[in-house]
């Protein structure tokens, strides 16, 4: 019961934090440098790992599906399978997981250390709401960068699959046929659904990571604990939300 109360309390506090951030939305244009800095941290620094991992996920997907499909002569559908899997599911979820690990942990660590070393208190005494300069630019940046990262993940995954199909002896589906199959059964809405998922995940990750970072109490030891907590909670939320969002979008 106590844990349920704490969960509800945390949920309510996170909503309040979002509401306080939304109150300052009109300040966003003059926070452009902070927004760009966060775009760099969330987008650019996560990009290499997203590129590499999505390429190999697409490759493995093509390899596994090629191995299974060759038994019943459905190799021509590998492109469709990789294409849809990447853009509807694996792309957004993988990007969300990588953003949590790469950017979310950094956000929590930064805000938690600001809290522990009284920088947040200093902001409050200066009548500068922390939500305005610390939460809002990060939320805006993640909303811009998540679809970009998801699109890049999709493309890398698709090309990874295409290369494997082309050069693996037991599959040997040429790139043209692979992309033709990918296009034939995929609609623009499939891509949009994936991007919407990425947006939702990004928003949830930054909200959780900012909230946990800003609510840290205690000494430096709490910084590490808060990062772990933020990652675990974010991953749980991503996977649980994934089911509900997928169900709603089907």
């Amino acid at each position: 019961m106590k844990q349920l109360t704490a969960l509800c309390e945390n949920f309510g506090s996170a909503i309040c934090m979002l509401a306080r951030s939304a109150r300052h939305i009109n300040t966003l244009p003059r926070q452009f440098p902070r927004f760009i800095e966060q775009c760099y941290l969330i987008g650019y620094t996560t990009l290499p790992i997203v590129t590499i991992l999505s390429f190999f996920i697409g490759s493995v997907l093509a390899l596994q599906s090629g191995y299974s499909m060759q038994n019943f002569g459905a190799k021509q559908f590998i492109g469709t399978l990789v294409g849809l899997s990447m853009c509807r599911e694996l792309g957004p979820v993988m990007v969300a997981i990588l953003v949590t690990g790469r950017a979310g942990s950094a956000i929590t660590a930064e805000l938690a250390s600001m809290n522990v070393y009284q920088e947040i208190d200093a902001l409050m005494t200066m009548n500068i709401p922390p939500e305005r300069i610390l939460v809002l630019p990060r939320l805006a940046a993640v909303l811009v960068m998540m679809p970009v990262l998801a699109i890049i993940a999709n493309l890398c995954g698709w090309y990874g699959g295409a290369i494997v199909c082309q050069y693996t002896a037991f599959i040997s589906v040429d790139t043209q046929s692979y992309f033709a199959a990918l296009k034939r059964y995929m609609e623009f809405n499939d891509i949009l659904d994936g991007l919407l998922k990425a947006e939702i995940f990004g928003f949830v990750i930054v909200t959780i990571c900012c909230y946990i970072g800003l609510s840290v109490k205690g000494g430096p030891r709490e910084i590490g604990a808060s990062v772990t907590r933020a990652i675990v909670v974010s991953l749980i939320f991503i996977l649980v939300l994934d089911y509900f969002v997928t169900k709603a979008l089907l």
């Binding site: 250390s113 070393y117 009284q118 920088e119």
Partner: peptide, 9 residues
């Protein structure tokens, strides 16, 4: 503040 609480970044 006692420790200054300067913004380290």
């Amino acid at each position: 503040f006692q420790a200054g609480a300067l913004f380290n970044s």
